[in-house]
Amino acid sequence: MQNNVNITKNVTEYRQDFAIIANWVKFGSKVLDLGYGVEKDDTNLIACVKNGTNVIQMDLEDGLSGFEDQSFNTVILSQTLQAMHNTEEIVLEMLRVGKEIIVTFPNFGYWRNRMQITAGRMPVSKALPYQWYDTPNVHLCTINDFDYFCHHHNIEILERRVITDGKEVNFMPNLLGSLAMYRLKSK
């Protein structure tokens, strides 16, 4: 059951990730924060409590069946998408429960990952700090993959931010960005 997804050991990048999420979440709104990764969750949870944002911590693999349609302003899945087994289902469930959703994930199309693949090895990096045999990341994707996923599932991309080492990337994000952050809603 325990599924640690402490992907970002890079503190700068982590804080940037959190700062953008915090910025996207309206103060006092109802937020369902999905995600496992004990260390990350702990910090996130306390930050949200501090913020006056309600946080519900739960095991994602149990699904969202307890929650009513459109009962949250925002549903967040932070750097966990790639570790989900039912990837498609969780995104659709989030869209059912939330008026808006936030999804962030490490971009597998980042040039450093591509370099390692080109060199014949599975990528290992600060953003993907696992070996192929012990990784919880079973559904890695690129920014282009996710864009296509949204298009294919009739999901509207309200905003997309891409960062590398804490800095925003606007030029060739699928190649130069290491972390992708999406704000989405159903079309």
Partner: peptide, 18 residues
């Protein structure tokens, strides 16, 4: 979680941590 679920059904203000 049963308590949390019931509170959420009522749109109550609730935070929950495991």
């Amino acid at each position: 979680r049963e308590i949390v679920k019931a509170l959420l059904d009522n749109e109550s203000t609730v935070s929950y941590a495991e």
